[in-house]
Write a protein that binds this DNA or RNA. Structure first.
Lengths: 150, 150
DNA sequence: TCGATATCGATGCATTTGCATCTATGTAGA
DNA sequence: TCTACATAGATGCAAATGCATCGATATCGA
């Protein structure tokens, strides 16, 4: 059966899509202004930095970042070409590889964060109170699949 | 001054970006499954349908949809090639044109909405109560630039 | 053990996006 | 009016994305 959305649901959808696009664009612009790589690079470098020396398999990056498989494959190729990550063979699976962030990759991530973090502070942190931040993230968590538990 | 973001602000940012990407992707998938055009087409057809017989200038579409100028230019070319919109010369400005949705364009929009609206109902309407929907849209409105007034 | 099937990651090709710039028309100031 | 500048929209070219598929290895069931 075709249950159509309420006007309130439509409004949430519209704002979600526009606000996220607008904020993402602003953050990207700030990075460009600093001659830094795009946000997608940050996401990957961030996950790899958190993973530490053990690194991550490409498919783990796909799970964590939601990028498409071919997208990760090519993004990693670019990151490797720039010396930000290294690809290591993995002992017990001849198909796979381990991706590890290099020192240069960590440094790039750090410089990106100086700009990116400032964008987040300005675009989100400065607009809502701590209580409101908690509410938004709880409600957005409910829209996620699977729903967030915190 | 510009400080670094609080953990709560970071969490809101992260969820905003991930949830919006995830939901957008699902809505796109639903359209593809129905052999329908992508969401971007809907946005433009929707604005044009609301504008009525008077149509809209491309620069007005840019303001309303947040697409880049070159993006609108090419999107309109594709829509015209598919017979969904028509381009009319504008009397008092030789540089410009008026874009008007055709009957076929209206019909396509209608068919897209049957699928798109259902996605919104499932992905948003079904996940939050009416009160919660109101809260999210109010809070997201504060993140917009300029902030929403309602 | 072998054959079928699934998973990991890469890639050829078409489409789309991003950037810079172009053409054409409009506007404003000397 | 004539010149400089601004605005509307298109486009060439490079980069990124999406789609389908491939090659290689792993796994599972008979």
């Amino acid at each position: 059966m075709t249950e159509m959305p309420s006007p309130d649901a439509i409004k949430v959808w519209a704002r979600l899509m526009r606000v996220s696009r607008q904020l993402m664009e602003r953050a990207e612009d700030a990075l460009k202004e600093g001659s830094l790589p795009p946000l997608a690079w940050y996401d990957v470098l961030h996950e790899l930095a958190e993973a530490g020396e053990g690194g991550l398999r490409p498919f783990q990056l796909i799970e964590r970042t939601l990028f498409a498989q071919y997208n990760i494959s090519r993004l990693l190729a670019r990151l490797e070409a720039d010396g930000l990550v290294e690809k290591l063979p993995v002992a017990d699976d001849g198909r796979g590889q381990i991706i590890r962030v290099t020192a240069k990759g960590r440094e790039t991530r750090r410089r990106m964060w100086a700009v990116y973090g400032r964008s987040i502070a300005e675009l989100v942190g400065a607009k809502l109170s701590p209580d409101e931040l908690g509410m938004v993230s709880a409600l957005l968590g409910r829209l996620r699949h699977p729903p967030a538990t915190d």
